[in-house]
């Protein structure tokens, strides 16, 4: 069963795009994180993009770096993340779950071992922020043999060669970068990215989800209108966690309202 394909088929039938929030596994601790992630799905998230905390997140801005630090301070490890993922998978058998992380966490376990553990935990896809196509071969091979989708990034400055390789290798979805830089709501995405989206279609890349700098329902609407299959919102979601660390009920309420608004914006006219 391919959960991404099933999701995109369902959304197509309902004339909707996907809303995919990102949070860090174990932020601020494993138990609270389980409540947060469950809330995101209960509130209408179509899929999840989840980080594993890392000491040196070079592609992330201050918001997600702070989430990593909170989780590491709670002694969260890749293994405790996999245990949490297993529990989530049991409760939510159909929601596509993707991991977004850094290469050294994969290398420390060994690529084979890491992907196998991810698969067993019910993970559908893996995106490694610091593995460009040029270094992707060993990861793509293991992704294929373990049945995990390797998510590839299409940056705004992608060359034709890059796009054609994405077309050749992409499964699940394509992570479309809304702009240059690192994650964060400080700089908004440059939507619409029509031209790049058209190219992705031309090269038969997996459906594009737009990420980086997405924080408002209007941006989601614009992205989907431009042809994106949906939008990913990381820092804006994580901000709601950071702003409510001392009141979990207020946090889940804020997340519920946010996901509700963002999801509503995925309905096509």
């Amino acid at each position: 069963m391919d959960r991404y394909k099933a999701m995109f088929a369902r959304l197509d039938a309902d004339n909707q795009g996907a809303f995919v929030p990102f949070v860090m596994l174990g932020d601020p601790d494993i138990d609270t994180s389980e409540r947060i992630i469950s809330q995101l799905i209960d509130s209408g998230a179509d899929a999840l993009e989840l980080g594993i905390p890392y000491s040196d997140p070079i592609a992330d801005g201050p918001t997600i770096q702070a989430a990593s630090i909170r989780a590491l301070d709670s002694h969260v490890t890749p293994d405790s993340c996999f245990s949490l993922l297993k529990r989530l998978r049991q409760r939510y058998p159909d929601t596509p779950i993707g991991l977004l992380l850094y290469s050294n966490l994969v290398m420390a376990k060994g690529i084979d071992n890491f992907y196998t553990q991810a698969k067993e935990a019910g993970v559908d896809s893996i995106l490694i922020a610091d593995v460009p196509l040029r270094e992707a071969t060993p990861f793509l091979e293991v992704a294929k043999s373990t049945g995990v989708a390797q998510i590839l990034i299409a940056p705004p400055n992608a060359t034709e060669e890059t796009l054609s390789q994405i077309g050749e290798h992409s499964h699940g979805y394509t992570y479309l970068l809304g702009r240059a830089g690192v994650t964060g709501v400080e700089t908004a995405a440059d939507t619409p990215a029509d031209a790049l989206i058209n190219k992705l279609t031309e090269y038969q890349c997996a459906p594009p989800l737009l990420g980086f700098g997405i924080s408002t329902p209007q941006q989601v609407k614009t992205a989907i209108k431009a042809g994106a299959a949906g939008a990913i919102s990381g820092s804006a979601t994580v901000n709601l966690i950071a702003d409510n660390l001392d009141d979990i009920n207020a946090m889940t309420k804020a997340l519920d309202e946010f996901v509700g608004k963002m999801k509503a914006a995925t309905k096509k006219d």
Binding site: D130, P132, L133, E135, L152, P155, P156, N157, L177
Partner: peptide
């Protein structure tokens, strides 16, 4: 190697 975000490759 070049273990950096795709964005930095160009």
């Amino acid at each position: 190697g070049m273990y950096v975000p795709e964005l930095l490759i160009p």
